[in-house]
């Protein structure tokens, strides 16, 4: 079964995501910040990365996605970016996925069915 890495500094979000994904049969890894997330992607080569934007710094998640884009080994791993800002007025302050190396945005709080649908589509 596919392995999914969840990178988020909010342990409750990691826990909630883990519950959903594990119930669907995925193997879930987690990391609490961008640096740990990068290390884990390189070491474990998961099939998908679910990445939070705002962690240690406001742009921590974007930094991680850029680093992965520049790493030929990690570049093909799809990234699903999670943010609680996608449907707020502040969304415009962030680059859209046209410019950054991610396959899509999902917003918090996560609807379990929608999350599983996005994950299944990206793992296809």
């Amino acid at each position: 079964m596919a392995r999914i890495l969840v990178v988020d500094d909010d342990p409750d979000f990691v826990e909630a995501t883990r519950l959903v994904l594990e119930k669907a049969g995925y193997e879930v890894l987690s990391a609490a910040d961008g640096d740990a997330g990068l290390r884990m992607v390189r070491a474990e080569k998961p099939d998908l990365v679910i990445l939070d934007v705002i962690m240690k710094t406001v742009l921590d998640g974007l930094y991680v996605s850029q680093e992965l884009a520049n790493d030929p080994d990690c570049n093909p791993i799809p990234i699903l970016m999670v943010t609680s800002i996608a449907n707020s007025d502040y969304a415009a302050l962030f680059p859209t996925d046209e410019y950054i190396h991610i396959r899509g945005f999902i917003s918090k709080p996560i609807a379990p069915a929608a999350l599983l649908e996005r994950v299944a589509a990206l793992l296809k």
């Binding site: 409750d12 909630a16 705002i54 379990p112």
Partner: peptide
Amino acid sequence: AFFIRLVTHELRAPVAAIQSYLRLILDGY
């Protein structure tokens, strides 16, 4: 940064977490 964090993250994150947990319980996850 203060306002972005406040409005987009700090205020929403706990509510989002609570809602996620409740949703999971309701949906049987």
